[in-house]
Design a protein around this nucleic acid. Structure first.
Lengths: 222, 222
DNA sequence: GGTTTTTTGAACTCACCGTGAATTTTTTAA
DNA sequence: TTAAAAAATTCACGGTGAGTTCAAAAAACC
């Protein structure tokens, strides 16, 4: 999932955008002005920036120009002014999209997704895990055991995908519930057990790859 | 190097695009409305046209229609309106690409390059998908099932085209709505379902190629 | 104005998910 | 070594929500 850097001097806007980012399942960081934004882009690992134009210390345009000197991270500009100048100027200095205030958070999310999918176009490498017996194609969402495709339920897919992506790593029950079910899931402990069981059943011969770590969680050994 | 004709009634846009054309090493000319554009395409020696849709005197669509009577020069349409109609209509009357405003100059340059390299390849190489039972001709916009051409509605074409172009890839509902309907579509969730249903019905025997991925979206398996 | 196409809302179905209880396995303590 | 406790596995059942379908309204097109 994407990590979004939200840059705005208004606390209200930051809270609003961050809330919607969470809802979309994105993680985020915030910055209150242009200088802080540059700092964070340089030192932390963001996927996209949403930047207000009008800010103290260093305005959005200057910040973008600075960032473009060392990074081509996607940037979406936010501006209260609706004049064309802002828009054109924003693109000129290297922004990827522009959205006028007031904007609907939903629209912002759509634009983030659009910009990201455009950015991802280039690197459309088919992610696949294959060890001869088990094959997991993340992009096609196809899982085969010994050459035969198996049908999995949505939760089984997500659980398996997460475990395979983190293969060789001990995953606590809590971690699995958080990552696969979501942070707001307060469900029963048996839920995870049951889905592990179902997944093992679906995987047949390959069930053994999911090893139980008693008192801890599970690990995928491929 | 290419010579680009920039057609827009806004001075700002003309300046922006022309500046980027220079940076890419292209030469350019400008026109402020459709009539002027037709005039210049007829009398001067351009390689490609970037044309705004909304202009005084003669709008972009009409201008393209007129130009197509005597020239098949590549044309990229620019439009502030985000409606799908514009896009489809633009392609229908002979535009080679479509880009929604606000656009980033970077993206426009990419498209210009893409369109030109496409145009430079043999034009007779029409893009076609054909697996024996189903045939999808993207350029001619013809779909046949078992040798018999089938009539599809515009949305059905768009949906099928996108799915076939991305065959073998799991496409989320969100992705499909974004790409086929546009990222400003706030419609009902049932819209996609319904069009999938209509498309399956139209495809008859080949309906099975569209597989449902519960909790996720759809995938075209050709 | 009539026709086609798209969108919407509502009804329906069924696969799936989460839960609690029973069972088995493993660990700890006596 | 055995008994008790803890953790994991398994099972079966009820509610739910995602997808399908339909019909009718709305929009776009001629």
């Amino acid at each position: 999932m994407y990590k979004v850097l939200i840059v705005d001097d208004e606390q209200g806007i930051r809270d609003l955008v961050s809330k919607y980012c969470s809802l979309e399942g994105y993680t985020y960081g915030v910055a209150g002005d242009g200088l802080e934004a540059i700092e964070k882009v340089r030192n932390e690992d963001y996927d996209i920036v949403c930047m207000d134009v009008m800010m103290p210390e260093l305005d959005g345009f200057s910040a973008v120009r600075e960032i473009r000197k060392f990074s081509n991270i996607p940037i979406i500009m936010l501006s209260a002014r609706t004049e064309t100048y802002d828009k054109i100027h924003g693109f000129e200095i290297g922004a990827d999209d522009y959205i006028g205030k007031p904007f609907s958070p939903k629209e912002l999310m759509l634009r983030i997704n659009a910009v990201m999918s455009r950015a991802n176009m280039q690197k459309s490498v088919s992610e696949v895990f294959d060890n001869g017996r088990l094959r997991v194609d993340f992009t096609a969402r196809i899982v085969s055991v010994g050459g035969n495709a198996v049908d999995l339920s949505p939760k089984e897919y997500e659980l398996l995908f997460f475990m395979v992506k983190n293969r060789g790593i001990a995953l606590s029950r809590e971690k699995l519930l958080n990552e696969v079910w979501g942070y707001d899931f307060y469900g029963d402990d048996r839920t995870l057990d049951t889905h592990i069981k179902l997944l093992r059943k679906s995987l047949g011969d390959c069930a053994e790859y999911i090893v139980t770590l008693r008192g801890m969680g599970y690990r995928f050994d491929g």
